[in-house]
Design a protein around this nucleic acid. Structure first.
Lengths: 244, 244
DNA sequence: TCAAAAGTGTTCTGACTACACCCATGA
DNA sequence: TCATGGGTGTAGTCAGAACACTTTTGA
């Protein structure tokens, strides 16, 4: 028998954000140190309770800003998956809606009221068990990484890890870090620049590095992701990661 | 300032199920007629409130069983997306976690306490606006259909729409209905049977129809989806839908 | 014998791989 | 001039599209 419509059960709802970036050729995730119980002192994903009158995405952006110290969220944010409410918080049933943020490496310096020490940690150390995280956040991070990996194949979101303008080599470094693989620079260059509706040449070049300066690109207008909307442009043909 | 940890806001949480099937060569969705306010008398997705102590998937399976009248849920069930809590229910903030069910056409005969007249309706009539549904359920159905379409490319879930054993032509009819396209029967046959780890020939044939009897296949063991688990097997190479 | 549907062979084309090669810069 | 990395050309291979063709059944 379902609960009467007039008196349904109510649950606390949290949002958690898996912010991923590429740093030093490896995928990193943003973690905070919890200052309150439960799991006080342990690492966890930034997140917190949804407030009355808030939407999910709104809450995720607010929590991320509060706990990482950035005013404007860079990169691409989307909903990942919901977990719970059963059996994931020692205090009782709490539903969490996890979000995924793909972002360029931004500096974090926040100290919130219930979290501190936000910082980037190598994802591989979590997956290998070298770093512990609170709640079911290891599962959430695993799901997020898998989502990010497949996102790169069919969407232009690899560029979400880069700044506004970037070289093909920087974009390739993103793919190599996320997929944890090596790609042929020549073929990647041709594929990325040859995919219609993906990149446009800005006409400028990057300097200062060793070797020949690289051309700077940005996302084509039709591939740009606007903060509020789901990504629409599909890479066709996809940039497939090597299998097997 | 976030809400105090000890006193977070609480929200009613519902689960909604977008059950899709293929019938007469077209994609259909399971809808019920609401017997209570709001939207009394209108069509809506089967669903209802999550009860204390329940998990999301558990709640979705329970609601589907209650409102469609089937004891055992056939097919493949996965979480789709969460919506809300802001601005989607006239009574106030309600979070809903939508689920997607891909199932063979099963008979529905239920009458629940707050819903009746469960039945299969052509998805296209909803998308074309010929049929109205309550709440934001049109958006949810649209998202579900798009998810189903991409699922068929990279997973063996096309077979979730078929029974235990099926012919290649039946499987092809599923793909054609979901993608709303036509596929070359010869090439589809070769691709489906030639994809390693997808299908196994049962050795039996289907009879009774006009023309040469077709061999019956079932999913290979490694491609079977178990009720509780996410689908793991990836079709490689993918069965791509025709683009552009 | 004919219609209808299952299943196979064959050719063409286009995309990916691998790798050779040239280009532009700093030291 | 050499090292370093950016960018292009090209041949081999493989998978998909298109479609002719054979097979097996019911009427």
């Amino acid at each position: 028998m379902p609960a009467a419509y007039s008196d349904p059960a109510r649950f606390p709802v949290t949002v958690d954000v898996v912010a991923l970036t590429v740093n030093e050729g490896a995928l990193h995730v943003l973690l905070i140190t919890r200052l309150i119980e439960p799991f006080c002192g342990e690492l966890a994903l930034p997140g917190g309770f949804v407030l009355p009158g808030e939407g999910l995405r709104e809450a995720a952006a607010r929590e991320l800003a509060e706990e990482s110290g950035v005013a404007q969220i860079p990169g691409y944010l989307e909903q990942l998956h919901s977990y719970g409410p059963q059996g994931r918080d020692p205090r009782g049933d709490v539903l969490t809606v996890a979000h995924l943020l793909l972002a360029p490496n931004f500096p974090v310096l926040a100290a919130g009221s219930d979290a501190s020490g936000a910082g980037w940690y190598p994802v591989q150390k979590l997956l290998d068990g070298e770093l512990q995280v609170a709640f079911d956040h290891l599962l959430i991070v695993s799901d997020a990484v898998e989502r990010a990996r497949s996102k790169l194949e069919y969407s232009p979101l690899g560029a979400a890890f880069c700044g506004e303008e970037f070289t093909i080599a920087q974009l390739r470094a993103v793919y190599e870090a996320v997929w944890d693989t090596r790609l042929d620079p020549r073929n990647f260059h041709r594929k990325a620049t040859g995919t219609p509706g993906f990149l446009v040449d800005t006409g400028t070049v990057s300097g200062g590095e060793a070797g020949r300066p690289a051309a700077l690109f940005r996302l084509a207008d039709e591939a740009r992701f606007v903060p509020g909307e789901p990504v629409r442009a599909v890479l066709n043909p996809p940039l497939m990661r090597p299998r097997g």
